[in-house]
Design a protein around this nucleic acid. Structure first.
Lengths: 106, 106
DNA sequence: GATTTGCGAAACCGAAAAGTTGCACATATA
DNA sequence: TATATGTGCAACTTTTCGGTTTCGCAAATC
């Protein structure tokens, strides 16, 4: 089992779950109501999300509330950093070009 | 076939390819040299990356140079935006808390 | 104490993914 | 023209994935 964050967010249902519990913790049943699939399927997704520490459990009686481990999402942001540098650089170059043209017209 | 960007970056080899060609275009053979798998396997990955428009081809004689479509990476950044808002907000709240404590001590 | 409710785990299934091998085709090079 | 090289594509195999069904267990409720 690979179980890394990139594999976790590859599935659209899991991305929807992440968005759903980002602002408030929810139980598996409550989450499952938002989807067509069964509670068990959702439970499986939650297991995967838990395994890669994207999600946190909080037991409350027989209910289990799942919430997003928001800090873990920063890992994606961190990976994206290298590319952000590239596209920001591209933007700067375009910016320079535009101001050069602008100055030439003066 | 799902073929969206999140599924594309789920595979570690594909992420490595993306990083590899981010700064300079490369041929399939040149890319394959960086991995244990065969050229055909790399070619398959490149096909997937091309299908979701993450990668651009440039034919040059019998060689094909692949380069990263950097703008497409912004889609991930865009999806991350909603979560960035959350973690930045958390940071601000912590910041407020700290300055409150600081002021109380004055 | 019996029943309902909320949950995870295991067994199973079909579809998709990721890899390999073999081939076809176009472009260089002898 | 014959051969070598760079490439994509199809067929096939093994593994993984996402789903359902079935079950067992613990907590709430009657």
């Amino acid at each position: 089992m690979r179980r890394d964050i990139f594999q976790a967010i590859a599935d659209p249902t899991r991305r929807a779950i992440i968005t759903l519990i980002a602002l408030q913790a929810m139980t598996p049943n409550a989450i499952a109501e938002h989807f067509d699939s069964t509670r068990q399927a959702v439970s499986k997704h939650l297991k995967i999300l838990t395994e890669c520490e994207l999600v946190r459990q909080e037991h409350q009686g027989r209910e289990i509330y799942y919430s997003l481990e928001i800090d873990k999402m920063k890992e994606i942001d961190k990976w994206l950093e290298q590319f952000r540098r590239i596209w920001e650089n591209k933007f700067k170059q375009l910016d320079r070009l535009l101001s050069t043209i602008k100055n030439e017209r003066k």
